[in-house]
Write a protein that binds this DNA or RNA. Structure first.
Length: 246
DNA sequence: TCATTAAATTGTT
DNA sequence: AACAATTTAATGA
């Protein structure tokens, strides 16, 4: 996974289609938008590549155009703790940018991803000048607070089916990840990495969730049928029976 | 456009 | 972890 060119050397300008797909761009006034569009950079990250590393000073506010990212903290003892996955349409790092601190998480691409970046100066300028931008940021911070509280509950849950369900409901959050819609492109292997379970167990859990009518399993992705059930459901004792030997 | 083949993903043990 | 089955993507006529 080692590439000779760094992420920042492979950047380019955003295409008009990519700009249109950015959720907060539509909340800006024309002159604000103009300034933002001129500053936004786009880069591609290969699977396994790091987008930001803990300790590096904040230089960009990031958004995911396409692909899948993992937000985690790696400890000195080699273990790592995954906080959350980031699906397309998600923007992150605003907390660090606001305070001009260093990044507190590692952001790693789980597969080939297209990432947008707003330079720190532009981010700060938008904060100082755009009411719509401030609304977006405030709304996002509030929504994410709810997610982190929910994530603490997920961590102490033993039932794998419920863990998978809750983690999925976070990825389907329409406020934080509006680009996801009702179909999330994620493989069972990728989901296993995010949740911290084996692929087999995730596969089994997905079958359970599907049996409950909460989701529909598709090749290379999932379709939500009942987001509320994913968030609140218990999915108890609905395991598949072992095959009979007669 | 269709058939063939390789690669990716899923389902099962 | 290994394997078979299925789906998609790539290739070329």
């Amino acid at each position: 996974m080692s590439s000779s060119t760094s992420l920042y050397q492979r950047r380019r300008n955003a295409t008009p289609e990519e700009i249109e797909a950015i959720p907060w761009i539509h909340l800006l006034q024309p002159h604000e938008r103009e300034r933002a569009v001129a500053a936004i950079l786009v880069t591609e990250a290969c699977a396994g590549e790091y987008v930001s590393a803990i300790g590096k000073p904040a230089s960009y506010w990031f958004g995911l155009i396409d692909g899948l990212l993992k937000m985690s903290a790696d400890h000195a003892d080699g273990s790592s703790m995954t906080f959350t996955g980031v699906p397309p349409g998600g923007w992150f790092g605003e907390g660090t940018c606001i305070k001009r601190e260093t990044y507190r998480y590692n952001i790693q691409a789980l597969r080939k991803s297209v990432i947008a970046g707003v330079p720190l100066e532009t981010f700060q300028w938008l904060l100082d000048h755009s009411l719509g931008f401030n609304r977006f940021i405030m709304n996002q911070l509030n929504e994410r607070l709810g997610q982190f509280i929910a994530a603490r509950e997920i961590d102490r849950m033993s039932n794998p089916d419920v863990r998978v369900a809750r983690s999925l409901s976070a990825l389907f959050n329409p406020v934080l990840y509006p680009a996801v819609g009702s179909v999330l492109r994620i493989t069972q292997q990728e989901l296993a990495y995010l949740v911290g379970l084996s692929r087999q167990r995730v596969n089994e859990a997905l079958a359970t969730l599907e049996a409950h009518g909460a989701i529909q399993v598709e090749y290379g992705g999932l379709r939500v049928m009942d987001l509320h059930e994913l968030r609140e459901g218990h999915f108890i004792s609905a395991r598949r029976q072992p095959t009979q030997t007669a």
